[in-house]
Nucleic acid binder design. Sequence first.
DNA 1: GGTAGACCTGGACGC
DNA 2: GCGTCCAGGTCTACC
Length: 295
Amino acid sequence: MRLVKSARQPFSLPAVIRSHGWVRLAPFASDEEGNVLERIERLESGRVVKMRVSAVERGVAIEVDLPLDASETEELSCKARWMLGLDQDLTPFYARCRQEPKLAHVERTAQGRILRSPTLFEDTVKTILTTNTAWSGTIRMVEKLVGRFGLPRTSDSEDRAFPLPDQLADMDESTLRREAGLGYRAPYVLQLARDVADGSLDLESLKGTEIPTTELRSRLLAIKGVGDYAAANLLMILGRYDSIPVDSWALKMVSREWFGGEPVTRAQVEEAFAHWGEWRGLAYWCWDWFSQSSA
DNA sequence: GGTAGACCTGGACGC
DNA sequence: GCGTCCAGGTCTACC
């Protein structure tokens, strides 16, 4: 089965796929060139499908390995629109980028969209698993989490979807520590899964909310395991770009760019992009750290 | 509000 | 092969 979806222009599927490392986290996958996105997805009907997204003129084509009924088709379309940000309008950001040599490439290459998981639950779990570990550790933890607890596509398939909150909520902490290698993060993921599963935390409602960013940030920070960096990362995913996910890499890049390699603080990273206002997180995200031209 | 130490794992390094 | 050290954010206790 094949669906075709249009995207607000400018749009580049490879730019979304390469927007950050999410594509390397199961159940996402891509081809070597980063031009095609694959994902194992569990639908509300209970069926698990393999989707393959490729670029077509002014949008994307989504191929699914099974025929879908009308509601499944609608569900998959909605998920694809969210994951790829097909409706996102970055016109004001692009207008500002034209004035900044270090961001001159952004509009031409249609950068700015960030690959997202279909649910904020999945993105929150993955964000927690990026903290206090090397990227290779994040990949390993997510692989184990999906490989051990995800729903298989078929009974004899190794392809698995991301575990649902209620699946993880039924686990015990020591199983998550041991079998998924989550270490001290296991109680955070478990509590998150249980709160989402029992309805006390409605993460999905945050996707379209119009509450102020400061309030949204407070709600994210109330999740155990989510600190300043993780909250800023999730705000970016939610399309709120007025904070910067400051990690060790950000400190290093800003130090090199403006402080001659001297150690910098989190506040100095924020300050370096303060004039970008509501776009500061995206300006940081898309910044060309490696060209010689001065900002 | 700021700071120190603990948390857990894998990789790098020295022996 | 083994032991030690370090990097990576967040939480908690304490000042």
